[in-house]
């Protein structure tokens, strides 16, 4: 099986000409299936840019980057949009649609699949909400949920589309210690059961223990670092 993410020689710079400012240099990174990798580093080290490149949210500039079997260098907007449907995103803010219920928000990530029926989507969304422990809050709007609950809905949404990869950016930043820990553990458990790799950008030392591997970045480069200790099974 090919690795879900294979990166070699990736570079990226913002700006043009004189103002050109490289943020990523010669990145090489491979994610194995089911692997949970934490990306840490000071702000400005380029980790978020790397995440947006892997997530096909940004056009590549140089290097090789294969995500779920698709080469991203030179990929068209349409190809990138199609690839995004196979990736689950979790953001720092929950970014749920305020006018939809929790269940409808989760169903939004499956609505793009033409093979599903409305009934199947809602059933799947209900099952996902149950899996994140919110089976009784399906009809609530995001405004009626606590911060931790919202982020759990966001986790359910990211996983509902049966993604091949999960990308998360500081998912615990807006949460207190307890709910932040719950959310990442939930994320880890759900992903592990399905063999989905997770790439998680974080500053939060409280959640380092969920990682299979921790990668540190500095000034746009990956710093050689220790292998994270094996994590006990849930």
């Amino acid at each position: 099986m090919t690795a879900p993410v294979e990166i070699a020689g990736l570079g990226y710079a913002y700006g043009e000409g004189e103002l050109r400012r490289p943020v990523l240099r010669d990145i090489a990174l491979t994610l194995a299936p089911g692997e949970i990798v934490l990306l840490t580093g000071p702000s400005g080290s380029g980790k978020t840019t790397l995440l947006t490149l892997i997530g096909a949210l940004r056009a590549m500039q140089e290097g090789r980057c294969r995500v779920l079997g698709e080469e991203l260098l030179g990929a068209s907007e349409g190809q990138r949009v199609a690839l995004r449907r196979r990736i689950g995103f979790i953001f720092q803010q929950h970014n749920l649609l305020g006018f939809l219920t929790a269940q409808q928000n989760v169903a939004m990530s499956i609505e793009l699949d033409p093979a599903t029926s409305e009934r199947a989507r809602l059933e799947r969304a209900t099952a996902m909400l149950a899996a994140v422990g919110l089976s009784d809050r399906g009809a609530s709007r995001p405004a009626q949920l606590s911060g931790g609950q919202r982020q759990r809905v966001a986790v359910a949404r990211a996983l509902a589309g049966d993604p091949g990869l999960i990308l998360a950016d500081e998912p615990t930043a807006a949460l207190d210690r307890q709910s932040g820990g719950e959310v990442v553990r939930l994320l880890r458990d759900l992903a592990k059961r399905r063999g989905v790799p997770i790439l998680l950008v974080t500053h939060d030392p409280r959640i380092l223990d969920i990682a299979d591997r921790i990668i540190a970045m500095e000034d746009g480069r990956i710093v050689p670092t220790k292998q994270a200790e094996a994590v006990p099974a849930p």
């Binding site: 995004r84 449907r85 803010q93 649609l97 305020g98």
Partner: peptide, 15 residues
Amino acid sequence: SHLKEYATLKAMGYS
């Protein structure tokens, strides 16, 4: 006023 939500939908693969 919903730019964030629209951007999220785009990230989820909505064209």
